[in-house]
Protein backbone atom coordinates (compact mmCIF):
# COMPACT_ATOMS: atom_id res chain seq x y z
CA UNK A 1 0.00 0.00 0.00
CA UNK A 2 1.45 3.35 -0.99
CA UNK A 3 1.04 5.95 1.69
CA UNK A 4 1.50 9.69 1.21
CA UNK A 5 4.88 11.24 1.93
CA UNK A 6 5.17 13.65 4.83
CA UNK A 7 8.71 14.61 3.95
CA UNK A 8 10.18 14.47 0.47
CA UNK A 9 13.76 15.55 -0.01
CA UNK A 10 15.61 15.20 -3.29
CA UNK A 11 19.23 16.03 -4.12
CA UNK A 12 19.50 18.48 -1.24
CA UNK A 13 22.63 20.66 -1.24
CA UNK A 14 24.00 22.91 1.48
CA UNK A 15 27.44 24.46 1.76
CA UNK A 16 29.00 26.27 4.71
CA UNK A 17 31.73 28.35 3.11
CA UNK A 18 33.71 25.84 1.05
CA UNK A 19 32.63 22.86 3.12
CA UNK A 20 29.73 20.90 1.61
CA UNK A 21 27.49 19.86 4.51
CA UNK A 22 24.84 18.26 2.27
CA UNK A 23 25.79 16.91 -1.11
CA UNK A 24 22.77 15.39 -2.83
CA UNK A 25 20.75 14.05 0.07
CA UNK A 26 17.52 12.12 -0.55
CA UNK A 27 14.98 11.32 2.11
CA UNK A 28 11.36 10.23 2.18
CA UNK A 29 9.27 9.91 5.31
CA UNK A 30 5.79 8.44 4.88
CA UNK A 31 2.64 9.06 6.83
CA UNK A 32 2.40 7.09 10.08
CA UNK A 33 5.95 5.74 10.09
CA UNK A 34 8.87 6.13 12.44
CA UNK A 35 11.82 6.84 10.21
CA UNK A 36 15.37 6.39 11.42
CA UNK A 37 17.91 8.92 10.17
CA UNK A 38 21.30 7.38 10.73
CA UNK A 39 24.75 8.74 10.24
CA UNK A 40 27.96 9.48 12.10
CA UNK A 41 28.52 12.86 13.71
CA UNK A 42 29.01 15.55 11.10
CA UNK A 43 27.20 13.59 8.37
CA UNK A 44 24.63 16.39 8.00
CA UNK A 45 21.71 15.12 10.09
CA UNK A 46 21.17 18.32 12.08
CA UNK A 47 21.63 20.50 9.00
CA UNK A 48 18.94 18.49 7.21
CA UNK A 49 16.55 18.92 10.12
CA UNK A 50 17.17 22.68 10.20
CA UNK A 51 16.41 22.90 6.49
CA UNK A 52 13.23 20.86 7.03
CA UNK A 53 12.25 23.42 9.70
CA UNK A 54 12.94 26.37 7.39
CA UNK A 55 15.61 27.70 9.76
CA UNK A 56 18.19 27.28 7.00
CA UNK A 57 17.83 27.57 3.26
CA UNK A 58 19.03 24.81 0.96
CA UNK A 59 21.51 25.79 -1.77
CA UNK A 60 20.10 23.21 -4.17
CA UNK A 61 17.63 20.36 -4.50
CA UNK A 62 14.09 20.36 -3.14
CA UNK A 63 12.52 19.77 0.24
CA UNK A 64 8.77 19.42 0.89
CA UNK A 65 7.42 19.08 4.39
CA UNK A 66 3.71 18.31 4.82
CA UNK A 67 3.36 19.17 1.15
CA UNK A 68 4.92 22.63 1.37
CA UNK A 69 8.28 24.35 0.95
CA UNK A 70 9.67 24.78 4.47
CA UNK A 71 11.56 27.99 3.60
CA UNK A 72 8.50 29.88 2.33
CA UNK A 73 5.78 28.27 4.47
CA UNK A 74 7.85 28.11 7.67
CA UNK A 75 5.24 29.33 10.12
CA UNK A 76 2.39 27.37 8.56
CA UNK A 77 4.15 23.99 8.72
CA UNK A 78 5.43 24.66 12.25
CA UNK A 79 1.83 24.49 13.49
CA UNK A 80 1.91 20.75 12.81
CA UNK A 81 5.51 20.01 13.76
CA UNK A 82 7.19 19.25 17.08
CA UNK A 83 10.96 19.54 17.27
CA UNK A 84 13.64 18.50 19.75
CA UNK A 85 17.09 19.92 18.91
CA UNK A 86 20.20 17.80 19.26
CA UNK A 87 21.91 20.04 21.79
CA UNK A 88 19.16 21.36 24.03
CA UNK A 89 19.98 24.79 25.43
CA UNK A 90 17.36 26.34 27.74
CA UNK A 91 16.85 29.75 29.37
CA UNK A 92 18.90 29.43 32.59
CA UNK A 93 16.55 31.40 34.82
CA UNK A 94 13.30 29.82 33.68
CA UNK A 95 12.12 26.67 35.43
CA UNK A 96 11.46 23.48 33.48
CA UNK A 97 7.70 23.98 33.92
CA UNK A 98 7.87 27.56 32.64
CA UNK A 99 9.90 26.46 29.62
CA UNK A 100 7.43 23.71 28.76
CA UNK A 101 4.51 26.14 29.06
CA UNK A 102 6.28 28.75 26.93
CA UNK A 103 7.07 26.30 24.12
CA UNK A 104 3.65 24.63 24.10
CA UNK A 105 1.73 27.93 24.34
CA UNK A 106 3.57 29.22 21.27
CA UNK A 107 2.08 26.21 19.46
CA UNK A 108 -1.40 26.79 20.83
CA UNK A 109 -1.24 25.27 24.30
CA UNK A 110 -0.50 21.84 25.75
CA UNK A 111 -2.85 18.93 26.24
CA UNK A 112 -2.92 19.31 30.04
CA UNK A 113 -3.47 15.63 30.86
CA UNK A 114 -0.72 14.62 28.50
CA UNK A 115 1.59 17.24 30.00
CA UNK A 116 1.04 15.89 33.52
CA UNK A 117 1.52 12.32 32.35
CA UNK A 118 4.76 13.16 30.55
CA UNK A 119 6.15 14.94 33.61
CA UNK A 120 5.33 11.87 35.70
CA UNK A 121 6.67 9.39 33.15
CA UNK A 122 9.93 11.26 32.65
CA UNK A 123 10.23 11.93 36.42
CA UNK A 124 10.94 15.61 35.75
CA UNK A 125 10.74 18.22 38.53
CA UNK A 126 9.21 21.27 36.81
CA UNK A 127 10.13 23.64 39.63
CA UNK A 128 13.88 23.51 39.10
CA UNK A 129 15.62 26.28 37.19
CA UNK A 130 17.06 25.19 33.88
CA UNK A 131 20.47 26.38 35.12
CA UNK A 132 20.61 23.45 37.54
CA UNK A 133 19.38 20.77 35.10
CA UNK A 134 21.80 18.17 33.78
CA UNK A 135 21.99 17.48 30.03
CA UNK A 136 19.55 14.60 30.42
CA UNK A 137 17.06 16.76 32.26
CA UNK A 138 17.32 19.55 29.69
CA UNK A 139 16.56 16.96 27.04
CA UNK A 140 13.56 15.76 29.04
CA UNK A 141 12.22 19.33 29.17
CA UNK A 142 12.45 19.61 25.38
CA UNK A 143 10.88 16.16 24.95
CA UNK A 144 7.96 16.90 27.27
CA UNK A 145 7.38 20.22 25.48
CA UNK A 146 7.47 18.47 22.09
CA UNK A 147 5.25 15.55 23.09
CA UNK A 148 2.70 17.43 25.22
CA UNK A 149 0.74 18.55 22.18
CA UNK A 150 -0.30 16.45 19.22
CA UNK A 151 1.57 17.06 15.99
CA UNK A 152 1.49 15.50 12.54
CA UNK A 153 5.25 15.29 12.36
CA UNK A 154 7.88 14.96 15.07
CA UNK A 155 11.47 15.91 14.21
CA UNK A 156 13.76 14.53 16.90
CA UNK A 157 17.51 15.13 16.72
CA UNK A 158 19.31 12.47 18.78
CA UNK A 159 16.62 12.72 21.44
CA UNK A 160 17.93 10.03 23.77
CA UNK A 161 21.63 10.92 23.89
CA UNK A 162 21.33 12.14 27.51
CA UNK A 163 18.70 9.69 28.79
CA UNK A 164 19.36 6.65 30.96
CA UNK A 165 18.02 3.22 29.87
CA UNK A 166 14.85 3.51 31.99
CA UNK A 167 14.03 6.86 30.42
CA UNK A 168 14.79 5.48 26.96
CA UNK A 169 12.03 2.92 27.57
CA UNK A 170 9.65 5.72 28.54
CA UNK A 171 10.66 7.59 25.40
CA UNK A 172 10.03 4.53 23.22
CA UNK A 173 6.58 4.09 24.76
CA UNK A 174 5.64 7.63 23.84
CA UNK A 175 7.01 7.26 20.30
CA UNK A 176 4.85 4.16 19.91
CA UNK A 177 1.90 6.22 21.17
CA UNK A 178 2.31 9.02 18.64
CA UNK A 179 2.76 6.47 15.86
CA UNK A 180 -0.49 4.80 16.92
CA UNK A 181 -2.13 8.22 16.73
CA UNK A 182 -1.05 8.40 13.10
CA UNK A 183 1.84 10.84 13.32
CA UNK A 184 5.11 10.50 11.45
CA UNK A 185 8.42 10.66 13.28
CA UNK A 186 11.86 11.43 11.89
CA UNK A 187 14.40 10.35 14.45
CA UNK A 188 18.05 11.09 13.89
CA UNK A 189 20.52 8.95 15.74
CA UNK A 190 23.86 7.29 15.73
CA UNK A 191 22.64 4.75 18.28
CA UNK A 192 21.79 1.66 16.25
CA UNK A 193 19.93 -0.34 18.84
CA UNK A 194 17.53 2.55 19.31
CA UNK A 195 16.78 2.74 15.61
CA UNK A 196 16.38 -1.04 15.40
CA UNK A 197 13.83 -1.04 18.19
CA UNK A 198 11.85 2.00 17.09
CA UNK A 199 11.98 2.50 13.38
CA UNK A 200 9.94 1.13 10.49
CA UNK A 201 12.29 2.42 7.85
CA UNK A 202 15.79 3.80 7.91
CA UNK A 203 17.83 6.22 5.83
CA UNK A 204 21.57 6.10 6.26
CA UNK A 205 23.63 9.11 5.30
CA UNK A 206 27.33 9.72 5.06
CA UNK A 207 29.11 12.97 4.29
CA UNK A 208 25.88 14.67 3.27
CA UNK A 209 24.68 11.89 0.95
CA UNK A 210 22.13 9.14 1.29
CA UNK A 211 23.86 5.77 1.08
CA UNK A 212 21.01 3.39 1.94
CA UNK A 213 17.31 3.62 2.52
CA UNK A 214 14.63 1.04 3.15
CA UNK A 215 13.00 -1.13 5.81
CA UNK A 216 15.21 -2.94 8.27
CA UNK A 217 14.33 -6.17 6.44
CA UNK A 218 15.43 -4.72 3.13
CA UNK A 219 18.68 -3.56 4.60
CA UNK A 220 19.44 -6.96 6.14
CA UNK A 221 20.66 -8.26 2.81
CA UNK A 222 23.58 -5.98 3.35
CA UNK A 223 24.39 -7.41 6.74
CA UNK A 224 26.31 -10.44 7.86
CA UNK A 225 25.56 -12.96 10.57
CA UNK A 226 28.46 -13.96 12.82
CA UNK A 227 29.08 -17.62 13.73
CA UNK A 228 31.32 -19.02 16.44
CA UNK A 229 31.58 -22.80 16.20
CA UNK A 230 33.47 -25.21 18.50
CA UNK A 231 34.24 -28.28 16.40
CA UNK A 232 36.94 -30.81 15.58
CA UNK A 233 36.40 -30.27 11.85
CA UNK A 234 38.87 -28.47 9.64
CA UNK A 235 38.11 -24.78 9.21
CA UNK A 236 38.62 -25.18 5.48
CA UNK A 237 35.15 -26.70 5.05
CA UNK A 238 33.65 -23.33 5.97
CA UNK A 239 35.99 -21.41 3.72
CA UNK A 240 34.66 -23.43 0.82
CA UNK A 241 31.16 -22.02 1.28
CA UNK A 242 29.94 -19.01 -0.70
CA UNK A 243 29.61 -15.71 1.17
CA UNK A 244 31.87 -16.53 4.11
CA UNK A 245 34.31 -13.88 5.23
CA UNK A 246 36.74 -13.08 8.05
CA UNK A 247 37.41 -16.72 8.87
CA UNK A 248 39.52 -17.25 12.01
CA UNK A 249 40.38 -20.63 13.57
CA UNK A 250 42.03 -21.16 16.94
CA UNK A 251 42.15 -24.13 19.37
CA UNK A 252 39.21 -25.90 17.76
CA UNK A 253 37.06 -22.77 17.62
CA UNK A 254 36.14 -21.31 14.26
CA UNK A 255 34.76 -17.80 13.87
CA UNK A 256 33.43 -16.35 10.65
CA UNK A 257 30.84 -13.97 9.21
CA UNK A 258 28.44 -14.95 6.50
CA UNK A 259 26.10 -12.95 4.27
CA UNK A 260 22.67 -13.21 5.83
CA UNK A 261 21.20 -14.75 2.63
CA UNK A 262 23.72 -17.62 2.82
CA UNK A 263 22.87 -18.68 6.36
CA UNK A 264 20.79 -21.78 5.32
CA UNK A 265 23.81 -23.34 3.58
CA UNK A 266 25.90 -22.86 6.75
CA UNK A 267 23.19 -24.49 8.85
CA UNK A 268 23.09 -27.55 6.53
CA UNK A 269 26.83 -27.94 6.86
CA UNK A 270 26.74 -27.52 10.65
CA UNK A 271 24.13 -30.29 10.98
CA UNK A 272 26.58 -32.76 9.45
CA UNK A 273 29.52 -31.61 11.63
CA UNK A 274 27.83 -32.11 15.07
CA UNK A 275 29.55 -29.10 16.70
CA UNK A 276 30.20 -29.10 20.47
CA UNK A 277 29.35 -25.43 20.83
CA UNK A 278 27.63 -22.84 18.68
CA UNK A 279 27.02 -19.11 19.02
CA UNK A 280 25.20 -17.13 16.36
CA UNK A 281 25.03 -13.35 16.53
CA UNK A 282 22.04 -12.04 14.53
CA UNK A 283 22.58 -9.35 11.94
CA UNK A 284 22.48 -5.93 13.48
CA UNK A 285 22.57 -2.45 12.09
CA UNK A 286 25.82 -2.20 13.95
CA UNK A 287 27.53 -4.42 11.45
CA UNK A 288 25.83 -2.68 8.56
CA UNK A 289 26.97 0.61 9.98
CA UNK A 290 30.52 -0.61 10.38
CA UNK A 291 30.60 -1.84 6.84
CA UNK A 292 29.51 1.54 5.58
CA UNK A 293 31.46 3.81 7.84
CA UNK A 294 34.18 1.64 9.34
CA UNK A 295 35.54 -0.42 6.48
CA UNK A 296 35.08 1.42 3.27
CA UNK A 297 33.37 4.74 3.87
CA UNK A 298 34.68 6.30 0.69
CA UNK A 299 33.43 3.44 -1.43
CA UNK A 300 30.06 3.45 0.33
CA UNK A 301 29.61 7.12 -0.44
CA UNK A 302 30.36 6.57 -4.11
CA UNK A 303 27.66 3.95 -4.58
Amino acid sequence: MATAAVITVTALQKRFGRHPALDGLDLEVREGEVHGFLGPNGAGKSTTLRILLGLMRADGGTARVLGRDPWTATVAIHRDISYVPGDVSLWPNLTGGETIDLLTRLRGGADERLRDRLLRDFELDPRKKARSYSKGNRQKVALVAALARRADLYLLDEPTSGLDPVMETVFRRHIDRVRDEGAAVLLSSHILSEVEQLCDRVTIILAGRTVETGTLGELRHLTRTSFRVTTGADAAVFAALDGVADLRAENGTVEFDVDSERVPAVLELLATLRPEGLAVTPPSLESLFLRHYGEEPAEAARR
Binding site: G97, E98, T99, D101, L102, L106, K128, S132
Partner: peptide
Protein backbone atom coordinates in the same frame (compact mmCIF):
# COMPACT_ATOMS: atom_id res chain seq x y z
CA UNK B 1 19.00 25.22 49.31
CA UNK B 2 18.05 26.44 45.88
CA UNK B 3 14.52 27.75 46.15
CA UNK B 4 12.13 25.82 43.92
CA UNK B 5 10.74 28.02 41.16
CA UNK B 6 7.28 28.10 39.62
CA UNK B 7 6.05 24.83 38.16
CA UNK B 8 3.82 26.73 35.69
CA UNK B 9 4.55 29.81 33.62
CA UNK B 10 2.82 33.11 34.37
CA UNK B 11 0.61 34.83 31.85
CA UNK B 12 3.54 36.80 30.40
CA UNK B 13 5.41 33.71 29.17
CA UNK B 14 3.32 32.73 26.20
CA UNK B 15 4.61 34.87 23.38
CA UNK B 16 7.88 36.09 21.89
CA UNK B 17 7.54 39.62 23.34
CA UNK B 18 6.62 38.15 26.73
CA UNK B 19 9.73 36.00 26.79
Amino acid sequence: RERPGRPRAGALLGSAPGL
